[in-house]
Design a protein around this nucleic acid. Structure first.
Length: 576
RNA sequence: CGGGGCGUAGCUCAGCUUGGCUAGAGCGCUUGGUUUGGGACCAAGAGGUCCCGGGUUCAAAUCCCGGCGCCCCGACCA
């Protein structure tokens, strides 16, 4: 392709509405343009890279034995009511009512659709296992789209779904996808780590996310250098410490020493600590949640945070939200900020961090009042303890004696063992060898295509622009011709351009009549891996210069040998 | 959804506090000329719904009210 015939609108300055480096560079290099918040057009260069990623994904899915399908974006709400997710997804799902008054959604994911297809088409163990996938646009009405294409309302996803007869079968399907994902990310040139993950709205028991380490990543991973444990912070386990092995009601025998103290205006942990001259770790926070509409008191040590995902799983709640101030007053008798477990007539659950605590501070369910020297067993009882807190940097590793370290990351893929969550609700059944009917055992597997592109740029760039990995670069080679009015130069450039195309090299020829500096800077900005410069030297010495984008120095070669030099370099820089 | 910021030429922004003449700069664009291996120079030129609507005023980019859009932080989140 000649630059003069395509659309590559590069920008000299950073666009004002971009914050992170991949977003800035994608706009500046003319890969994308924003239409509205969270909706982007892909221009020729961006689309070429996107398609290269899609090709890699497709090759690896096919190699892993998955079959490609294409399902509708437009889906009836009814289908989502079957699985029970119509409400679960809430406003995250784009919905509209059609002319006949039917409620429709734009698919945020396709578990329901694929399950409805499979339940009608497969009914015997003889037909299983099967893995189906598609590559398609997904819609999510995100609360806050941001970071360019990293969190957008419309994006490209590869989603795959496996159907097996049992858990063991699912294990194999899951492994096959997991391995395919590793190959895909490697071939795209990414650094990545699979980590244990929470299953969120998709559901299921086991899941792994594939994370690209990046400062700008929205996700936080906690990892143990000692044993290799690696998990998303929202998933990372916080098992009970050794202290929690013993009785938590150690003070049961003695008399209660609880005293009320006045703490006017102190309703945050910090304020209370300052007032009572104590530490957050000596407080118990009592949070009131509404789980499926019923109030629950949740206790955690004052210096820790509740992990809502863990809580929701423990309570097996369909919906979970923090109670309003009005509700808190109603169920505890005290205002927001002064809740405590003593005398509370609610379901109470506590994080393990509460277990070993003694003589602690709690709210008194009374305005401007706290209780001190409170003890478990003596003053109140907790029947249910569990791991409910958010893990954080510096915590003990749940698997060994190591310490957890923190890294930010971009989630580029996520694999789930769903089990029978969808198949049983939606009646996707099959007949076993013995003639019994059983729900299929499912897995689902997603890759964010656009995120692969953005995270590659996050990983590989310098102050001049993008440095594409060869496998997903829009073009492999860029020819920069320096004098558009010089027949010898243009003739040599054209010959190299045509000969490279003949041997199947993807080449962009910058044939624009612009100053050399402009063209070099644009070439650096768009980051094509190999640059061939054709200028005066071809006239004077018969040479052109070949330079990898990632290298500082260029090497002169005779123009007749340029194609050979380039193809040699191509091999050197191609990974996977 | 809470908090903050922004909206003026294709892009980046100044002007707004303290209302006033024809609304500005740099880059980009057009034409002519000179240049040509790292964002060149000279000259001439085109380009505006100052986000939208209403109000105040002799007079509004500027002040007031309402709305829309975008960005950031938080809450939330495959």
């Amino acid at each position: 392709m000649r630059w003069s015939q395509t659309l590559i609108p590069t920008l000299k300055e950073d666009p004002s509405d971009a914050e992170i480096v991949s977003h800035k560079l994608m706009l500046r290099a003319g890969l994308i343009r924003k239409l509205s918040a969270g909706a982007y057009s892909y221009l020729p260069l961006g689309l070429r890279s996107l398609n290269k990623i899609i090709n890699i994904v497709r090759e690896e899915m096919d190699a892993a034995g998955a079959a490609e399908v294409l399902m509708p974006v437009l889906q009836p709400a009814e289908l989502w009511r079957e699985s029970g997710r119509f409400d679960g997804f809430g406003d995250l799902m784009c919905r509209f009512t059609d002319r006949a008054g039917r409620v429709n959604v734009l698919g945020p994911t396709h578990e329901e659709v694929i399950t409805s297809i499979v339940r009608d088409s497969l009914n015997s163990y003889r037909q299983l296992p099967v893995t189906l996938y598609q590559i398609q646009t997904k819609f999510r009405d995100e609360v806050r789209p941001r970071f360019g294409v990293l969190r957008s309302r419309e994006f490209q996803m590869k989603d795959a779904y496996s159907f097996d007869v049992d858990e063991a079968g699912l294990g194999h399907s899951y492994k096959a996808m997991y391995d395919a994902y590793c190959r895909i990310f490697s071939r795209c040139g990414l650094k990545y780590r699979p980590v244990e993950a929470d299953t969120g709205l998709i559901g299921g028991d086991v899941s792994h996310e594939f994370m690209v380490p990046a400062e700008s990543g929205e996700d936080i991973m906690l990892s143990c250098a000692k044993c290799g444990y690696d998990a998303n912070a929202e998933r990372a386990e916080c098992p009970p410490t050794k202290d929690a092995q013993g009785p938590c009601d150690s003070g049961l025998a003695g008399k209660s020493n609880v005293r009320e103290v006045s703490t006017p205006g102190a309703h945050t942990v910090e304020q209370v600590c300052k007032f009572l001259n104590t530490e957050p770790a000596q407080l118990i926070k009592t949070l009131i949640y509404m789980a499926d509409g019923k109030p629950v008191a949740v206790l955690v040590r004052g210096d820790r945070e509740i992990n809502q995902a863990k809580l929701q799983r423990f309570l097996k709640a369909g919906t979970l939200e923090m109670a309003s101030a009005v509700t808190i007053l109603d169920v505890t008798g005290g205002p927001l900020g002064f809740s405590g477990p003593v005398g509370l007539k609610l379901r109470m659950v506590a994080d393990w961090s509460v277990w070993p605590m003694k003589d602690f501070v709690t709210g008194a369910n009374k305005a401007d009042t706290h209780l001190v020297e409170v003890n478990l067993g003596k003053d109140f009882k907790i029947e249910e303890f569990s791991d409910l807190r958010m893990a954080k940097e510096g915590d003990r590793c749940p698997r060994c004696e190591g310490t957890l370290a923190l890294t930010h990351g971009i989630e580029v893929g996520h694999v789930f063992k769903l089990g029978t969550k969808y198949s049983s609700k939606m009646n996707a059944l099959f007949r076993t060898e013995k003639g019994e009917q059983k729900p299929m055992v499912m897995g689902c597997y997603g890759i964010g295509i656009n995120r692969i592109m953005a995270s590659a740029i996050e990983l590989y760039h310098d102050e001049h622009g993008v440095i594409w990995p060869m496998s997903i670069a829009p073009y492999q080679v860029i020819i920069v011709s320096l004098r558009q009015d010089d027949e010898q130069i243009m003739g040599a450039a054209k010959k190299i351009y045509e000969n490279l195309q003949k041997v199947g090299v993807e080449v962009l020829w910058d044939d624009r009549d612009l100053a050399p500096g402009v063209k070099f800077n644009d070439a650096d900005l768009i980051g094509i891996p190999i640059r061939v410069t054709v200028g005066n030297k071809v006239v004077k010495a018969g040479t052109v210069d070949v330079k990898p984008r990632s290298a500082k120095e260029q090497v002169p070669v005779f123009h007749a040998g340029a194609v050979e030099a380039v193809t040699e370099m191509l091999q050197k820089y191609t990974c996977g």
